[in-house]
Design a protein around this nucleic acid. Structure first.
Lengths: 209, 209
DNA sequence: ACAAGTACTGTACCGCGAGTACTTTTCTCA
DNA sequence: TGAGAAAAGTACTCGCGGTACAGTACTTGT
């Protein structure tokens, strides 16, 4: 929740609505989250809500956009940090994965859930543009991780035949799946350990140990 | 959909309701699926529905129970098939993973979605016993895969330090995440390729190639 | 042939939640 | 102090989950 001071009153209310809504959506699904409960918790009226969002789908869109932006900036920061610690593409990626696992492991109550995954299991509830946003989100992550893997593959021979798109996707899959397992088992540590296993896989493929 | 002939008329209707409900739940979430649409598609009345299920939560429970039973028997069949093709625990597991990937790849419209994953993102909608069923489902899969890995680890030294529970969980994670990616990207092939990558990981850990 | 289930249909009703529409008030800052 | 931002107020509609209960057609054993 970046610098509250710089946000106008309206923007603060809007962010508060989004915070409350996101938490509810991750536990009850989008359709299961009522506007009434959101406005009650936000301490506003229905009219106040509709001042900020034209309908429920508009809320879904804003929620997803904010989530994707946040994820993007988190990855950006971790990649930057990793790049500062090593020039080598493989070691930088391995450092990134370690940092990623640490961040995911340090969340006090475990990861609250991936909004994109939640939306995928409610796709028929949303307008086409929202559905395209989830698709595009996964495409971006694939492209992003793939870039890193390309640079690695250019310098390191791989021990086995591997499709780099699949290897890039696997990080998304392991993260999404790890979050589900963590939540379902109430074992917050599962997610970061799964990321570390993906790291072990990358290491085995390019270093052999 | 085992032998329709052996099912009584009531059981057939019940199964039809479950089929329709499952499809809807995987696309709209549980809360987003209305009883009215289910009964309309099933060609019954509301009273007919409540003859089979005492309320919506009861439907959720029956849906999940049937899903878990089906998954269990699919895995059972694949493990049995794999065991017949090799006595060696590692090769049997690798064959199993190949078969699993093939089955997932042969689904004409891609995997329809994992009901357990869908439920995890709606946990607050369900009663405690339903939530415990999803947890128990993941625990069973972990135990199941772990047994296989134990037998493998007893015969093959692992190339890296590895936690076998995590390795067992990784298959669930990769499958759940792979399904989400497949659905989101509308690329049915992603799921089976992710399973094959998990297979490559297991192979690298225990065989080094 | 008939009684006893089984598997429903029909009807009527309730309260809550999403969403619409539009007016009015309060706050905030230049 | 006045204009726009940020709501509050009011009033209504419709869909949905759920309840209650009476009636009916089909099926199955005896």
């Amino acid at each position: 929740m970046a610098n509250v001071q710089t946000l106008s009153k309206g923007e603060q209310t809007r962010e508060r609505i989004l915070d409350i809504a996101q938490d509810a959506v991750l536990h009850k699904g989008f359709a299961g989250t009522s506007l009434d409960e959101i406005i009650a918790e936000a301490g506003i009226t229905k009219s106040g809500f509709f001042y900020h969002f034209k309908d429920k789908n508009d809320l879904a869109k804003a929620l997803l956009q904010r989530y994707l932006d946040t994820e993007w900036s988190v990855f950006d920061a971790l990649f930057k940090q990793a790049d500062e610690l090593s020039e080598d593409p493989l070691h930088s990626f391995l450092i990134f994965l370690k940092l990623f696992a640490e961040v995911m492991g340090d969340l006090p109550n475990g990861h609250p859930g991936c909004l994109v995954s939640s939306y995928v299991y409610s796709d028929h509830m949303f307008s086409r543009d929202v559905r395209e946003m989830t698709t595009e989100g996964h495409r971006i992550w694939r492209r992003r991780f793939r870039e890193r893997l390309d640079r690695i593959a250019a310098r390191y021979p791989s021990r086995i035949e591997i499709n780099l798109d699949d290897m890039a996707d696997m990080l998304s899959a392991v993260a999404d799946g790890g979050i589900i397992l963590s939540k379902s088992l109430s074992e917050p540590g599962v997610l970061s350990r799964q990321i570390m296993q993906y790291r072990a896989f990358v290491r085995l493929v390019f270093l052999g140990n």
